[in-house]
Design a protein around this nucleic acid. Sequence first.
DNA 1: ATTAATGTTCAGAA
DNA 2: TTTCTGAACATTAA
Length: 283
Amino acid sequence: MPELPEVETMVRGIRPHVVGRRVADVVRPRCRRKPILIQPGFRQLRSRTRGCVITTVERLAKRVLLKFDSGDVMAIEPRMTGLVLLADPPTKEHLRLEWLLNGKGDYESLWFWDRRGLGTVRLYDPQQFASRLGPDVIGPDALTCSLDEWEERCGRTQRAIKVALLDQKWIAGVGNLYASEILHVARIHPERCAGDLSRNQIRKLREATQTVLATAIRYEGSTLSDGTYRNALNRNGRYQNEHRVYAREGQRCPACRRGTIRRFVQAQRSTFCCPICQRAPRR
DNA sequence: ATTAATGTTCAGAA
DNA sequence: TTTCTGAACATTAA
């Protein structure tokens, strides 16, 4: 379930071990499953990255970006179950790609592991790389979505606020789990129309987004009960212990201690909220 | 033994 | 134009 905090944890985990190292080779492990999507194909990925030095590792919303001295940018999208690892994959049979690394370092390879296989790896040349994403909710300072930008975006959609938060072209970086957590902290009902929010509520929403995601990063993300891990050494995150509403249906709300956490479905995804803290919109 | 649910993204339909 | 639906795939729980 890599969302933004889990992807940021991967990036921080691998960065010190891969920056400056040269790709000796790219290997697709033997695997009878349907191969993951690689653009522009495995052979080109291999020939264009072999011999290149990794210059930077960054996060863009929920993607891992590796940049090479050739100028090429490789975007790894873990989607539902992908992990970027230096060691200790959960299983052998779901290993999808291996980058063998030359030079001194604690680890021989960088791996992409993906149980469901919905993840993608794409290689872009410098001119070609242009993101279709909205502003990153918690990017480097200059790129962090400003309050004015939040307000402008809210004003131009009639969708429920939680549905809008999950739209990466609208604002990038919020996933399903953290959307419920953020709205609970901001005390905004998930079904409220985004266009109806006051400037003050939008301010609270923006602040809740930044504090929830920053805190989750400090805890190295959330490891859910399905046991898909996310840090670079396949260790559990710890933020799942801090969840206030996600997957806590039927439990007492930890904020008001009066409401009972409810679950319902929006845009085919589970939403959790406290009906007392988060007042339902008029219908 | 079916069916529903699980984190994400995107093409295509409404 | 905007918004919604289903599919991609694997695995587990009910």
